[in-house]
Nucleic acid binder design. Sequence first.
DNA 1: AAAACGGGGGC
DNA 2: GCCCCAGTTTT
Length: 219
Amino acid sequence: MTEPFPIDTVMQTLQTTMADYPQPLVDAMAAAHTSPFHILVATILSLRTKDTLTAQIAPALFAVADTPEAMLQLSEERLIELIYPVGFYRNKARTLLHICQLLVEQHQSDVPADLDALLALPGVGRKTANLVLTAGFGLPGICVDIHVHRICNRWGYVHTSTPDQTEMVLRQVLPAAYWIPINGLLVILGQNICHPTSPRCSVCPVEAHCARVGVKRSR
DNA sequence: AAAACGGGGGC
DNA sequence: GCCCCAGTTTT
């Protein structure tokens, strides 16, 4: 028998210790009650990209593409010019225009507040759909990105091989109070301390509870 | 299961 | 110069 993972202690510790670090872009947008459409666009743009890059180009983009209809007025070439620095720009531009077209045609130009409807949109997987639900609408959901997946396995809290598997396990074991905050907190922890390689365990506030599964080197 | 999409930033 | 980045889709 092994001790159950002390998720309450860990999450409450993170909620106090991570408050000093900058918030991820989408969490800041959610705190400012930004529209679900902006949340969705920012999330698509941030795929495999540092969200600070998205933050840099977002003001110029939303100045001319504040709604699905407005974004559809842009040519693919013009949209690429606006989002170029985030990378995967051709793919993302086509995806955004396709999404806007479907929102206008099938959802009265609104972002649907429904997991399955979001998953039906092109370029929207479980992480993006859950982030729009939680950050855009304040609805229940668990966003499992690479940070949440890596850190939960490193802790020994879950034993999974893909982020989607991690989400399904967390839905069974993670107390509801942490469904929304876990993503932002572990992104901050992952970016600043619990790095993919050579994590800074000596300054980690929850080191005492970590099983360090798969950690080879640390500082 | 692996490749493809990609420029920008950290070290 | 090399590695990584709030993933998803296609092969």
